[in-house]
Design a protein around this nucleic acid. Structure first.
Lengths: 115, 115
DNA sequence: AAAACACTTAGCCATTGCGCTAACTATCAT
DNA sequence: ATGATAGTTAGCGCAATGGCTAAGTGTTTT
């Protein structure tokens, strides 16, 4: 339960930046090199690299260097943690909704049932 | 497309903190006052309040004050933005997978069924 | 061998995030 | 009216984030 906490921290933090989300979007279509990825952004390379490194540290992106080119790929499995958290929240809501529905149903069971 | 960007920034940032995620979890079971919410946390009230205010600013939580008590409720709709972004990413992956599948299918079309 | 390329390292800077204490305001209870 | 309760405001401090420039490393290309 709490094990995921730190991972969620870093994943959500990683997603909280438009540059990084854009990189993720781009990598969704397939692997790319650093400079390919950097091209669309009006940003010095070292600044851009920090984003890549952060994405790598959170496990959302994996990189491999061959020769002088570093190729980045998206680690899609990693998004399961986000999904997991979201659906856990929804499960909580549903549980409450069920209780509420039970209450509402019980309360109005004297008069109506349609709709 | 880009209009949502800032909202996603702030939502993901809001989710990138364990205290705030815990608050969200708690509010998932129903509304609560500030001090009720704060109880489980070993943190000064003003510090805790900052989290609440941030959650409110991002629209994930709504608050209303009656008398001296401020009641917080979860704005569940807000999570749709996260869902939306996630499924947009998945759509990108699928598109690529489709292309890849088309390729694989075409390549091995001598032996296998159509699609 | 020299030049171009693709990063990489180091270090600076401004802003923001997240915690604190101290002191204040506005109810509500007695 | 006193005092407890529930927030609120103001301001401090430290670490992390997100940008930059300048200079360096290791690979390819010519």
């Amino acid at each position: 339960m709490d094990y995921y906490s730190h991972q969620l921290d870093s994943i959500f933090l990683a997603l909280a930046d438009p540059t990084r989300r854009a990189v993720i979007g781009r990598l969704g279509t397939g692997p790319a090199s650093i400079s390919d990825l950097a091209k669309p952004f009006d940003m010095a390379l070292p600044s851009f690299m920090k984003h890549i490194r952060l994405l790598e540290e959170t496990g959302l992106v994996e990189t491999r260097k061959q020769g002088r080119v570093r190729t980045c790929t998206l680690e899609k499995k990693r998004f399961a943690l986000v999904d997991g958290w979201l659906s856990a929240q929804r499960a909580i809501w549903e549980a409450r909704t069920d209780r509420l529905e039970a209450f509402v149903t019980a309360t109005q069971s004297k008069e109506e049932k349609s709709r």
